[in-house]
Design a protein around this nucleic acid. Sequence first.
RNA 1: GGGCGCUUAGCUCAGUUGGUUCAGAGCACUUGGUUUACACCCAAGGGGUCGGGGGUUCGAAUCCCUCAGCGCCCACCA
Length: 886
Amino acid sequence: MSSNISCYNAMEIPSKFDAQKVEEKWYRYWLEHAFFKSVPDHRESYTIVIPPPNVTGVLHMGHMLNNTLQDIIIRRARMLGYNACWVPGTDHASIATEAKVVAKLKAQGIEKNTLTREDFLKYAWEWTDEYGGVILEQLKKLGCSCDWDRTKFTLDPELSESVINVFVSLYEKGLIYRGYRMVNWDPEAQTTLSDEEVIFEEKEGRLYHIAYSVVGSNDKVVIATTRPETLLGDTAICIHPEDKRYTHLKGKQVKVPIAERTIPIIEDDYVAMDFGTGCLKVTPAHDFNDKVLGEKHHLDIIDIFNPDGTLNTFGLEYEGLDRFVARKKIVKALEDQGLLLKIENHIHKVGTSERTRAVIEPRLSDQWFLKMEALAAPALNAVLHSDEIELVPEKFKNTYRHWMENIRDWNISRQLWWGHRIPAYYFGQGTNDYVVAITLKDALEKAKLKSGKDDLTIRDLHQDEDVLDTWFSSWLWPISVFDGIRNPNNKEINYYYPTQDLVTGPDILFFWVARMIMAGYAFRQERPFQKVYLTGLVRDNKGRKMSKQLGNSPDALGLIEEFGADAVRVGLMLSSAAGNDLLFEESLCQQGKNFANKIWNAYRLINGWEVDSKISSDHASQEALDWYEHYFQKTLKWVDDNFDKYRISDALMSIYKLVWEDFCSWTLELVKPAYGKPIDEVTHQRIVALFENNLRILHPFMPFLTEELWHFIKPRSPKEALTITHWPKITHFDMSLLNQFENMQEIVGGIRNFRKENNLSPKIKIEVYVANSILPLAFEASLKKLGGVSQVVYSKVGTGVKGGTFRVNALEFFIPLNQEENPEGERQKLEEELKYTRGFLTSVESKLSNERFVANAPDQVIAIERKKAADAQAKIILIEKRLSEL
RNA sequence: GGGCGCUUAGCUCAGUUGGUUCAGAGCACUUGGUUUACACCCAAGGGGUCGGGGGUUCGAAUCCCUCAGCGCCCACCA
């Protein structure tokens, strides 16, 4: 495969680049030659760990954006000579995957609750083995240069063991504890959620005004609530101690409607007197604040719900009904009893599950928590003070700080089966009758010790049923993929860690990024990565989030098939500044495809020239090649700067313009020999070398096309493949050379504009008169080639010659015209130009005559203004002269 | 309710410490081109009182104040 990998003969190269034809071939080639494989060596490492997608996920636009960025960065790092290592893998995504498996089983008529844990896990693994990793295959289609031999899964035995080790060690440090607390309960998934997994959505609700009878009087007290069904769990009514409206109620008791229980009226300044009726019902089992009130006032706790959100025996006649059904019925009952006084519309925020969208039920339960404060301190410092970790864009620093400073303990247990089972083992019924250990054997020893019972056996131990929050394994990812938890001094972790870049979305800044930083400092005393690049969300062209429900998300693989991977990568990169949302349109991919085709055809041109070693190069070619060499360097500097600042789309745009405008439209056009004529050898060599440099800097963005062309240019061995070649080094560039060429470009532009305005066909050769200057030799050659100029005459035009003029800077050009001239039109144009120039001059002069400007502005600025004035004066003289000649 | 950010051409966005190159880019648009690399193309061109108002300054897209609109994060007002 090494010598002649190209599938075309030079003569039959088609004018369209066919991406499908080459992508698979090159990906296979890269894998066969192990270009993406990394093992520790003498070079400096450059590491990226992939944000592991859900194992059962399929590639969507967000993944494409994210992974294209990572691939661009890692490919460039590879070319820069680093030992580049991109570690791929997938996440078991406990709740999401379990939900999918449950749904799939349900479709087959199997209910989860009829299965044992073991059976369910068997199904889950079957599912994982079948669909897991599909997404990784899709990443290959995108061209991702991951070291696939390193592919990891968060439920792999080594990674699982790392998670358990970490749990045990945190427990032993006293950072993990069990607590009976109010947690976020997802009634659909029937598990708790961390605070971060709850999304508050603004919803239109109702505020129900309900009357409670005061015991021992005919008085009623009216409360306002959004959740009337929870009155069955009420254990108090609360008023503000200073609320004059209710002083007569102090110390009284009221009767809960329907439940007919008697509960006290308590006083607390927590109550807002101006909200609702100023009177609050207290349900400690089902509201975070009521729980606090309940503890303060030693109230009873009545939990009225089953785990699935239906009412339990405290629900009385409503037992078994769903909470929302019960709400309706209870409202009806209250209405019938005349206790429902008013229903107001009320907009409020409702917590919903990030995964299932179910309305969250605050619920008291036994859960495991991780103390966060101590872990957060070094992580906060690293981002905010020491700058060991850089967030891009920087604006996320504030968000990060706010979260870290107000961090609360992390609820890490989940009532699920798919995940890392909590290594706690119970040996008795007491709240403290458990031990935490890595292995069952250790657990038994510890249990014996703790219980004082030497005759305990493994059968007496019962492992906690819960699993750990997915993020409790993901937060170790940069460490655990290199086995740095279990073997903290192994060669790999020491070589690859800390990693360089993390590319991910801001939506998981807290879930994941912040926690990885904490884990990095906690378990390795070192940052996990240097830079965090936070991408934007991919939206559709109307600014809507891409989602399955809206059906506005294009099929990622379909796009690759339609436009080619390179084109899709370019399309995504063209408008995706860091942190800014990306409004995606297919037309961006079309633009990428057009670009790929442009490059393809540029090579077809070069490739098609006949090379003659006996002729020598001309002035125009030399000038163009000299210029492009320097201009390339200038652009490369800009590109490298942009890469350093993670401005990947700016980097791409400058390469896009460099190749399309500067290389194709200027350099190639100037170098191009006349039709049928050969090109000289030196020029040909130079243009090929320049084209190769273009391919180098294009390669991270468009790996397939560039590798294809790279091997077109000449047969190359795998050692010389573009993927592992070097990124160009910046050398000096000469500004005066660049300026001079730019001057020539402006003159060509002037001529072309003149042609257009005077309807001069490009086929008609023209003479150009320059009266007040001599142009460099190379200019003349370039003007002839690009402007259709037959010759440049350095003299004034003879009297009576018809024609027109145009000016570039301080140069005036005259072009004779055979056709009938239009003196009135010419006069009008000149007068407009004169008027504008005079106005410009006046403004500059007024600036210069302003004493304070001259006194305060830097000399450089004043000099510029003087030059502007002088140029304008010269131009005015030229125009006036021309006008007088008309 | 608190915090952060955004508003520049029809669209998506650059614009680094106020002053060369400051009013830009790409796309779209208009006009003219089948010149054998490319119509997935070439050439030329038209678009903006930089969200409104006020201020500081010799000088403001850039700094300050204010208003309006949009977005994000955080927060227990039932």
